[in-house]
Amino acid sequence: MLVDSHCHLDFDVLAGDIDGGLARARANGVTHCVTISTRIRRFDTIRAIAETHDNVFCSVGTHPHNAHEELDISVEEIIALSQHPKCVAIGEAGLDYHYDSSPRDAQAQGFRTHIAASRETGLPLVIHARQADDDMIAILEEEAEQGAFPFVLHCFTSGAELARRGLALGGYISFSGIVTFKNAAEIQEVARAVPADRFLVETDAPYLAPVPHRGRSNEPAFVRHTAEKLAELRGVPFETIAEQSSANFARLFSKAGLTA
């Protein structure tokens, strides 16, 4: 059993063949996936996908690229939407200083709003962090002082210090197809070191297809290649990675009601 903990089934390249994509995923041992929200105002689309497919869950949140567009959405509104039975997480939200598509103060404001919703609901916060390690650490540690909240650093591409500080706060780290890339030595070192009870696997489909599919559209079935690479890096059988990552998903995304 594998779970793709982060994909975007509403994005055009996947939306046209969701049934086929899920069938290919099942054929590769990927039993469930979470389709992740990037705009709260498009949550109806995300929710409909989850309602239509028994093995798909969803989240509710605003990607940092879009933070400035949805600053008027309150904590209470996010909480209300998250009550849907198939909604198992808040986000993705966070900081992206690579593209800076949204002003940094807007990203931080939106991020803190999502943290508050996670803290209030107990649902895990799916965090996007790119080239913003120092500010990410500062916000996470400051907010943790106001009360704990569950979270995962998704599609981990940051430095070892963010990994260490995030783990110290009780967070999880999710690895995508990037960990299979030849130039991902630093991320591979983090993947070796993360405790067995704190890692997840994901695709971030349709982006970041792993080797041997690099350069084409990603899909949930390909999370198997990420799991196989983690097994190689950690020196354990593939079955161990599948079991551990699924158990970790079931623990963090407890609303999904899965058992590994």
Rank of each mutant, 00 (worst) to 15 (best):
L2K: 03
V3L: 06
R39M: 12
D96W: 02
I36W: 06
E228I: 06
T113N: 12
K229S: 09
R198F: 08
H53W: 03
R192G: 13
V211E: 13
A221V: 02
Q146K: 15
R214A: 04
P206Y: 04
G147K: 06
D17R: 08
A231N: 04
Y97M: 08
A242E: 14
E239H: 06
L123Q: 09
P124E: 07
H225T: 00
L162F: 10
M136T: 15
R224L: 15
S158E: 15
H63C: 09
P150D: 10
A89G: 10
V236Q: 13
A260R: 12
E228K: 06
I90W: 08
G20P: 04
V60K: 01
D96T: 03
A106T: 00
A48K: 13
V223K: 07
T62N: 12
L208I: 09
A108W: 00
F175Y: 11
D204G: 05
A256D: 09
C33D: 13
E232W: 01
E232V: 13
L14W: 05
I90Y: 09
E161G: 04
A247L: 11
A209D: 06
C33Q: 10
E143S: 09
L71I: 03
I90Q: 12
I46P: 00
R251M: 12
D100R: 14
F253K: 03
H213I: 00
P64E: 04
T180H: 12
K229C: 14
I187P: 04
F43L: 11
H154A: 03
G16Q: 12
H225A: 10
T62P: 06
G122I: 06
L22C: 13
F151S: 13
D17Q: 12
L169F: 04
V88K: 02
F249Q: 09
S59H: 01
S246R: 14
T52L: 08
L162E: 11
P64A: 10
V30K: 04
V211A: 08
T157M: 09
A227H: 06
R224T: 04
S101K: 14
R47P: 05
I18R: 03
A184M: 05
R130C: 10
F151W: 07
I49Q: 02
R104H: 14
C87Q: 01
L14D: 07
V60W: 02
G21T: 11
M1V: 11
L153Q: 08
L162P: 07
E189W: 00
F238L: 15
